[in-house]
């Protein structure tokens, strides 16, 4: 076995968008990449929740690191806060990706499925905005 593949976390304001993006990753890329998704606030409305983002990072954890795909404003700031709350040894291995959430998740997972490094997975997804 080679070193673990980078994990993917999808954070959207909408639980349906997060779930749908995760479905696309699973169907198009397969299950060789750790994957978790979260969306919506604790009351069931649109939004993002710090605790749930932390859970998602935990669920998709990989020793190779985790990239987080976010949609808008609060998803990004809450994800950054979640990363700051991680243990010191993990904090440096989780990065928010500047890429569209759906396409970015599929592209990041494709790159990750080949065993690429955290840095390369992030850079490849960010090519979408280049």
């Amino acid at each position: 076995m080679r070193v673990a593949n980078v994990g993917i976390v999808i954070v959207s304001h909408s639980p349906k968008v997060a779930e749908g993006a995760a479905d696309m990753v699973r169907q198009m890329v397969g299950d060789s990449v750790p994957l978790a998704h979260t969306g919506g606030d604790p009351d069931g409305g649109l939004g993002t929740d710090l605790a749930r983002i932390l859970e998602a990072i935990e669920a998709a954890w990989s020793e190779a690191g985790v990239v987080v795909l976010v949609d808008l404003g609060g998803a990004e700031t809450n994800s950054e806060m979640a990363i700051e709350m991680l243990d010191e040894d993990r904090r440096g291995r989780v990065v928010v990706c500047n890429a569209p959430v759906v396409e970015g998740a599929v592209i990041a997972a494709t790159e990750a499925s080949g065993g690429s490094s955290l840095e390369l997975v992030k850079r490849t997804a960010e090519e979408l905005y280049a």
Binding site: M28, V29, G30, V106, T110, S113, G114, G115, S116
Partner: peptide, 9 residues
Amino acid sequence: VKLTQLAKS
């Protein structure tokens, strides 16, 4: 995606 994954192997 399939083509990319295969090439990467």
